[in-house]
Amino acid sequence: MTATDLTRSARAANHARPPGRRTGARAVSAHTAKYTLLILSVLVVLMPVYVLVVTSFKSGSEIGVTGQWNLPKHWTTASWDKAWRALGPSFGRTFQMAIPVALISSLIGSANGFVLSRWRFPGADLVFTLILFGMFVPYQAVMIPLRQIVQNIGITPGIPTLIFVHCVYGIPICTLILRNYYATTVPEEVIEAARVDGAGMLRTFWSIILRLSAPGFVVTIIWQFTSAWNDYLFAIFLSNTRNGPITIALNALAGAQSPDYAASMAGALITSLPTLVVYILLGRWFIGGLMAGSVKN
């Protein structure tokens, strides 16, 4: 057998090899690379969290740049006690702000979205454009006139003022999300059936649409709750440490002339805990609610 014959035999053997084996090896390599990247991404995200947690349980003498990755030699909760004493009063006030903001702005956005998507009227597109325009107005550009408007209206400074402001600024994004949700998810036949039965716009919205709005409401509630809870700019302009939310108290705790880094780390973890719980409880419906309003059936 010549060299040419051997080459031809090798090529024939390669072509005769089952394609499934080659495809399976490629699939395994792709899965390995994907999960390796995912694990590395998770590690990168969790590294700051690790430093936060271990530092919050250290005493002052153990805190330093060189030993930031080391576990505490003596675990202590003194920093957590100090952080809670500083943040505790504002913690409850922030719940009093974030929960009404999420519910009120979601309800107003739901009504706007229903009218603009299913109950058309002359100039509806212009009204929708003007509402969305509020999403592109920078907070910094309106902070001084906004404070003057709030003072002229006579709203009580502190949490009531922040509820009013966050609800107003949350209407555009809630309207956008829920308008897309109603336009792509709620069947037109449902609206027509309500009209045939004699239901008007308000009755249709209250008796039918709200019951179908849970996925969209999950998205807007998570969005608004997180935005209100984490806000600092509105809080620093429209409230103070005595009547403001937790972000101002956290800044006061971390911004002292001689900062207590362990207490600051514990305070940051306490501050982020409610939003983390919200995402854990409602996160499984968050992506589904977003996708429900993005693809037309």
Results as ranks from 00 to 15, higher is better:
5 D>A: 15
6 L>V: 12
7 T>E: 15
8 R>Y: 01
8 R>A: 13
9 S>K: 08
9 S>H: 09
14 N>P: 00
16 A>N: 11
17 R>T: 05
19 P>T: 15
21 R>P: 00
23 T>N: 05
25 A>G: 06
27 A>P: 00
32 T>A: 14
35 Y>M: 07
37 L>V: 13
37 L>A: 14
39 I>Y: 13
43 L>I: 15
46 L>S: 10
48 P>H: 10
57 F>N: 06
60 G>D: 14
66 T>Y: 06
68 Q>R: 10
70 N>C: 02
71 L>K: 10
72 P>E: 13
74 H>Y: 05
74 H>R: 10
75 W>G: 09
80 W>G: 07
81 D>N: 12
81 D>G: 11
82 K>M: 12
89 P>R: 07
91 F>G: 01
92 G>P: 00
95 F>W: 06
96 Q>I: 02
97 M>T: 01
98 A>L: 01
106 S>T: 15
107 L>C: 08
110 S>V: 02
111 A>T: 14
111 A>H: 02
113 G>Y: 10
116 L>I: 11
120 R>W: 08
121 F>K: 08
121 F>C: 10
121 F>P: 09
130 L>F: 13
131 I>Y: 13
133 F>H: 04
135 M>A: 02
138 P>F: 05
144 I>V: 13
144 I>K: 01
146 L>N: 04
147 R>D: 00
151 Q>D: 10
153 I>N: 08
155 I>L: 11
156 T>H: 07
156 T>R: 13
158 G>H: 06
159 I>F: 04
161 T>A: 15
161 T>N: 03
163 I>C: 12
168 V>M: 14
169 Y>M: 13
169 Y>S: 09
170 G>R: 08
170 G>S: 13
173 I>W: 14
176 L>E: 00
178 L>N: 02
178 L>W: 05
178 L>Y: 03
179 R>A: 10
179 R>F: 06
179 R>P: 07
180 N>C: 00
185 T>W: 04
185 T>R: 07
187 P>Y: 05
188 E>S: 11
190 V>W: 08
192 E>P: 01
194 A>T: 12
196 V>H: 05
198 G>D: 12
198 G>R: 09
200 G>C: 13
201 M>Q: 11
202 L>K: 03
205 F>V: 06
206 W>F: 10
209 I>R: 08
214 A>I: 08
215 P>T: 01
216 G>C: 05
219 V>P: 00
221 I>M: 11
224 Q>E: 08
225 F>E: 03
225 F>M: 03
226 T>F: 02
228 A>C: 04
234 F>H: 07
235 A>S: 10
235 A>R: 07
236 I>L: 09
237 F>L: 03
237 F>G: 00
238 L>N: 00
243 N>T: 07
243 N>V: 09
250 L>Y: 14
256 A>Q: 15
259 P>C: 15
260 D>M: 11
261 Y>G: 06
262 A>H: 09
264 S>V: 07
265 M>Q: 08
266 A>N: 03
267 G>Y: 03
269 L>N: 04
273 L>T: 14
273 L>R: 03
274 P>Y: 07
277 V>F: 10
278 V>S: 08
280 I>H: 02
286 F>S: 00
286 F>L: 12
287 I>L: 12
288 G>K: 04
289 G>D: 02
291 M>I: 04
295 V>I: 15
297 N>R: 11
297 N>W: 02
